[in-house]
């Protein structure tokens, strides 16, 4: 099974992206943003990072069946519930 290694590996790029997203989450809060936009923004970033973990780190992107939709649904449902609790 020959292996074509694209430099850098996809999982490395995903890792760097998540580090940046995390830094953004922190920076946004440090800059004193608060209230509705902070909550929505930070929550959205968290869900994106979560989806990246599910797809690339857990490797569910390459798995058929209900596993990926289940975890994506979990993230969306949880995100909606938290957003609802913070706003309604």
């Amino acid at each position: 099974m020959t292996k074509t290694l694209s430099i850098p590996r996809p999982c490395t790029r995903i890792w760097l992206l998540m580090m940046v997203l995390t830094f953004i989450t922190w920076a946004v809060a440090q800059l004193g943003l608060s209230g509705q936009w902070l909550i929505l923004g930070v929550l959205a970033i968290a869900l994106v990072k979560g989806q990246l973990v599910v797809d690339h780190f857990m490797g569910l992107r390459r798995v058929r069946g209900f596993w990926r939709p289940l975890l994506t649904g979990y993230l969306l449902l949880l995100g909606a519930a938290l957003a609802g609790a913070f706003f309604l």
């Binding site: 995390t22 989450t25 922190w26 946004v28 809060a29 608060s34 902070l38 909550i39 930070v42 929550l43 970033i45 968290a46 938290l82 913070f86």
Partner: peptide, 8 residues
Amino acid sequence: FPLVYVMH
């Protein structure tokens, strides 16, 4: 982390 440390 965002839920407990950041969101307010």
